[in-house]
Computed example of a mutant assay.
Amino acid sequence: MDINSSPPFELLLRVRYSECDAQEVVFNARYADYADLAATEFMRALVGGYQNLVAQGLDNQVVNLNIGWQNSAKFDDILCLSVHVSHVGNTSFSMQITMINWLTKQAIASAEIVYVMLDIASFTKIAISQGMRDKLLKGANGKRINMSGIEISTQ
Rank of each mutant, 00 (worst) to 15 (best):
M1T: 08
I3A: 04
S5W: 03
P7I: 06
P7C: 05
E10P: 00
L11K: 02
L11I: 07
L12A: 06
L12Y: 09
L13H: 00
L13Q: 05
R14N: 06
V15F: 03
R16H: 15
R16N: 13
E19A: 05
C20G: 04
Q23T: 08
E24P: 00
E24S: 14
E24L: 13
V25I: 15
V26H: 04
V26I: 07
F27L: 10
F27K: 07
N28M: 07
N28R: 06
N28V: 11
Y31M: 10
A32R: 01
A32K: 02
D33F: 06
Y34P: 03
A35N: 05
D36N: 14
D36T: 12
D36M: 09
A38Y: 02
A38K: 00
A38R: 00
A38Q: 03
A39P: 02
A39F: 02
T40F: 09
E41I: 01
F42Q: 02
M43S: 07
R44H: 13
A45R: 05
A45N: 03
A45P: 03
L46A: 03
G49Y: 05
Y50D: 11
Y50F: 14
Y50M: 11
Y50H: 15
L53E: 12
L53M: 15
L53C: 07
V54H: 14
Q56S: 13
Q56M: 13
Q56P: 04
G57M: 09
G57F: 06
L58P: 04
L58E: 10
D59P: 01
D59F: 05
D59T: 02
Q61A: 13
Q61Y: 14
Q61H: 12
Q61F: 15
V62M: 08
N64E: 13
L65Q: 11
L65E: 08
N66I: 10
N66H: 13
I67F: 07
G68Y: 09
G68P: 00
W69A: 04
N71L: 07
S72E: 05
S72K: 06
F75Y: 15
D77S: 08
C80N: 07
L81Q: 01
V83W: 01
V83G: 02
V83N: 04
V85F: 03
S86F: 03
N90W: 00
S92R: 10
S94T: 12
S94H: 10
Q96Y: 12
T98I: 09
T98S: 12
T98K: 13
I100F: 00
N101F: 06
L103R: 15
L103I: 09
T104A: 06
K105E: 14
A107E: 10
I108L: 09
I108A: 01
I108E: 00
A109G: 08
S110D: 13
E112I: 10
I113T: 12
V114A: 04
V116T: 14
V116W: 02
M117S: 08
L118F: 11
L118E: 04
D119N: 15
D119P: 05
I120T: 14
S122L: 12
S122Q: 15
T124P: 00
T124I: 05
K125V: 03
A127H: 09
I128L: 08
Q130A: 14
Q130G: 06
Q130E: 15
Q130F: 05
G131N: 14
M132L: 15
M132W: 04
R133Q: 13
D134G: 04
K138S: 12
A140M: 07
N141T: 07
G142V: 07
K143W: 01
I145C: 02
S148H: 09
S148P: 06
G149D: 10
S153K: 13
S153D: 11
Q155M: 09
Q155E: 12
